[in-house]
Nucleic acid binder design. Structure first.
Lengths: 334, 334
DNA sequence: CTGTTAGCGCTTTCAA
DNA sequence: TTGAAAGCGCTAACAG
């Protein structure tokens, strides 16, 4: 690999001049600029970002640490981040923590060691990881999941309200015993959605007892098992609110396997959409989150924090919306 | 951020000794080691990877450049890569080229500038990008998509054979005019799958003419449009082989919208599975790829190439398997 | 406008 | 076993 000195020699100038040309700096003589550019082409010169970053004490890469790359939720979120990042001159790399705090810790350590310019993180729930970033002075924005015990810019959605909407709809459709498949207890999103479920039920004087709740892992398999548990353990719900998209798919799968017709014998509403929700039969009613906007907003916030590191952290909460499809619209009352 | 010199001062040793401790090097006196470790803890010292990498002339990060993070195909592939990488002491970052050669070029440039230890790439089809890596001496492995015009380690699947299996099954089920929704013309995977379709048809003396082929973009929307075109332009196929998973979903969507019953009036087989293929009604028959294994194998190949940079490139081809579900199993002959 | 010089933080000879 | 010193490739003062 050619270095800046090779280029300098070839062009008959100093390394500083090459550096100026590379960085489009102030008035370098046109003739020299041309010579340098020619030399760079001849030598196929590529600046070594490692050296540059070391010297500058900053990089131009953002890390997005997501908790499950298998969740389509993140697909469009990442696009939102990328679009903003690119406009602001940053590259984005994705790190998949797979809901594993240890894996997340490794990526946080890497982001720190590599002096990443900023981090957007959908936390697995360990505030320690986020705090490590903050203490080291790395600009960071929490996305999707609030991080308790860390003063950090955050972009969230109104989880509780979205869950209420979902349950209200099930109630309006005439369902009586509405269960909840919640997520990992440590995750605020799961807690908030479960709380929304309970709140809506209580508002209508319906039971919102523990035996109507099961906890999954936010994966398809977890949804399947939670649904099975609900069915097997004699609670006899006639509807279920599922706190995340992948688990909703799993729950549906279970219902299909058991031959329980949806929505007639079981109403289903899930939190967060899936791109093919309407292809599934019956099509899935879901609480839709503005995923792209979530990513965009987080990126904007990150850019602002980088520009102004000392300003107090802010939280943006985006609205969710209920999309009623077939799975929650019973044709006949029970 | 504390530097190695801060630690050295605090522990009353030289920076070299700290470095030795950090890197677990040869015999450093036990007492000194203890003092250094204490100092590191006191100062919350984290080695600066930029400086280290600059000095060592290598990093411990692999970049995986994928063409569409929205495709579940990549989810499990990435897990395969991560599992091997971690065992070998590397971190993995994901870059989403979004099927855009320009975006891909940017990530290749970044990988080069950041002196990434290796790259696994599902190419958008521009050999130039891959060649840039090879010429710069960066270890690289092509995954899923062969790169023509580049001598590179590759992990592929038997696309042509998988497509043949799919079409054979449609023929066996009694379908007569079997269309093909192929992918971007520039992509070898699309070409190979289309070729497999044609080969199977010819083997049975069936027409495999151009008017039975439409080209999508490997996205859901493209599949929808291609299906619509097939329907609207008077070809009247009674079955369709779709060259990728997302497009299969789009095609199904179109069929639902048009009220065309699958598999009775239209048989469908797609290439590459989706995690919820059996939830869709009718459930989707697909050619299944060993995605996790694909990732694993690519990672293994990359590790080997890093260890032995001069060995000739090798290509590993993995087998596909046909999973027959409802969408290709017509109950009554036409 | 251009070149000289001094590091960024780390590792690695080379001596002691 | 330990330390001093050089230098990875680049940028940013500072002179000229």
């Amino acid at each position: 690999m050619a270095t800046i000195y090779d280029v300098a020699r070839q062009a008959g100038v100093s390394a500083a001049t090459v550096s100026r040309v590379v960085n489009g700096r102030a008035s370098v003589d046109a003739a020299l600029t041309a010579r340098v550019q020619q030399a760079m082409r001849d030598l196929d010169y590529r600046p070594n970002a490692l050296a540059r970053n070391l010297r500058r004490q900053r990089t131009s890469i953002w890390a997005v640490i997501i908790s499950d790359i298998g969740n389509p939720f993140f697909t469009s979120m990442v696009r939102g981040v990328e679009d903003v990042a690119q406009g602001a001159g940053y590259s984005v790399v994705l790190c998949n923590s797979d809901e594993d705090p240890a894996k997340e810790a490794r990526y946080v350590a890497a982001a720190l060691a590599e002096q990443m310019a900023g981090v957007i993180i959908s936390s697995t729930g360990k505030p320690a990881n986020v705090n490590r970033l903050i203490e080291a002075g790395t600009p960071v924005v929490a996305i999707d999941r609030e991080v308790r015990g860390a003063a950090v810019d955050s972009v969230l959605v109104d989880n509780e309200h979205g869950a209420e909407l979902a349950v209200e709809q099930l109630i309006a459709a005439g369902y009586q015993r509405i269960a909840c498949i919640s997520g990992p207890r440590r995750l605020p999103t799961a807690q908030q959605r479960q709380r929304g479920w309970a709140k809506a039920l209580r508002a209508h004087r319906r039971p919102a007892t523990d035996d109507l709740v099961r906890y999954g892992d936010f994966r398809q398999e977890g949804g399947y098992q939670a649904m099975a548990a609900l069915l097997d353990e004699g609670e006899q719900p006639d509807a279920v609110f599922v706190a995340n998209n992948l688990m909703t798919v799993g729950a549906m799968e279970c219902l299909v396997d058991r031959g329980i017709p949806v929505p007639d014998r079981m109403g289903v509403v899930g939190f967060d959409d899936i791109p093919w929700a309407h292809l599934v039969r019956p099509s899935l009613s879901t609480v839709v989150q503005p995923t792209y906007e979530l990513g965009r907003t987080a990126a904007l916030l990150l850019a602002e924090r980088i520009a102004e590191p000392t300003r107090p952290p802010s939280t943006v909460t985006l609205r969710t919306e209920l999309k009623v499809r077939e799975s929650s619209a019973r044709s006949a009352a029970s």
